[in-house]
């Protein structure tokens, strides 16, 4: 039994302009102690998938199909009271902008203690002590004083640490992190990554790491799912994906990461932009931007053997393309 198993998830937004299929048949799973990176550009549906698991999709959006099983239990259409008991307790979430995730008019201790008391039957003093210990655990110096501070007295990196501490408070089984390092400086990014890696290893927590930054993924995630236009286009072990991406979109993503081996060469880019959510191409959604496009790409593509491209087997080897420009 996997910790989290999403199967053919459909999350749609019913707007006046039409139905936006933000998540259109996504399936992935995470085990305990495993890190899954979900990679994709803005609007690919990676965040909406995460929010769907949390039951945090607001109107006009709705999970319209598929299943989300958490520890074997179906939670896609759980009653709100039961979902609330899971949220923040068994499944925690961390968001992108640490400057915005803490309530500016409540002290840190208030925001931490309430998270514990929402789920555990515990005295206020005991909860406070527990919150302080967790604050220390995420590397915040003199946690006793910092507990009584206000969010505006923290830097961005420190606030993200506080948000991580809040996520850890109730010892969740699964953490969904939605671009938690995107808004931070590169040095702080590395610290937060390192911190999360350590915490997940210690507690055996499952981690879904949503990001658009492939360079963050290498060496951190066990597996990667690449999303494009509401679908997963490729899912593989991290090393395999980075060494030998099979889908043309994954190739484009990896090829466009600047590398020391290609110093001086022109940066590769994927031509064009993602299709508008209300007007996606029939068949392969990446086809209009794909340099390997041929007849047959207008057919509906299915995820077969971890890749959503019927030509995946015929494409020239990826490594050659890279080493060709090296040295």
């Amino acid at each position: 039994m996997r910790l989290l198993e999403i199967d053919d998830l459909q999350t749609h937004f019913f707007t006046s302009g039409g139905v936006v299929k933000a998540v259109d048949g996504v399936s992935y799973g995470v085990d305990r102690g495993e890190v899954l990176a979900v990679v994709g550009e803005s609007g690919s549906g990676k965040s909406v998938t995460g929010l769907s698991v949390m039951g945090l999709i607001d109107a006009p959006g709705r999970v319209v199909g598929g299943s989300i099983r958490f520890q074997g239990r179906e939670i896609a259409n759980l009653r709100s009271a039961e979902m609330r008991r899971l949220r923040g307790a068994r499944i925690a979430m961390i968001f992108q902008d640490p400057m915005m995730t803490l309530n500016p008019v409540l002290r840190i201790d208030t925001q931490m203690v309430e998270t514990i008391l929402a789920h555990q039957d515990m005295g206020r003093a005991e909860a406070w002590a527990k919150a302080r210990d967790t604050l220390g655990r995420v590397g915040i110096p003199s946690p006793d004083e910092r507990m009584r501070a206000w969010p505006h007295q923290f830097s961005g990196g420190m606030r993200q640490r506080v948000a991580i501490a809040i996520a850890l408070l109730n010892k969740p089984d699964l953490i969904i992190a939605d671009e938690p390092t995107t808004a931070l400086d590169v040095t702080i990014q590395a610290q937060i990554l390192h911190l999360m890696q350590g915490l997940v290893e210690q507690d055996g927590t499952g981690l879904v790491w949503i990001t658009h930054d492939l360079s963050v993924v290498a060496g951190f995630a066990d597996r990667v799912a690449v999303m494009y236009a509401g679908e997963i286009v490729e899912a593989a072990r991290t090393d395999d994906l980075i060494d030998a991406p099979r889908h043309p979109y994954s190739r484009g993503l990896i090829g466009s990461v600047p590398s020391r081996n290609r110093r001086g060469a022109r940066l590769a880019q994927i031509p064009g932009g993602a299709p508008p959510a209300l007007d996606r191409p029939e068949g392969c959604r990446f086809a209009p931007r794909c340099s390997f496009r041929t007849h047959g790409c207008e057919k509906l593509q299915v995820l077969r053997d971890g890749v959503r491209c019927w030509r995946a087997g015929d494409l020239p080897p990826f490594a050659a393309a890279l080493t060709g420009t090296a040295s």
């Binding site: 949390m54 945090l56 609330r84 008991r85 899971l86 949220r87 923040g88 307790a89 925690a92 979430m93 968001f95 992108q96 902008d97 915005m100 995730t101 803490l102 309530n103 500016p104 008019v105 409540l106 309430e114 998270t115 929402a118 789920h119 948000a163 809040i166």
Partner: peptide
Amino acid sequence: AQDFIRFARAKGLSESRIVLVHILRN
């Protein structure tokens, strides 16, 4: 619409606490 309200929901707080503490104070 602020992120911190979404975060408060993600913490599993009750709707009444979100409205009466997190929204009202703001």
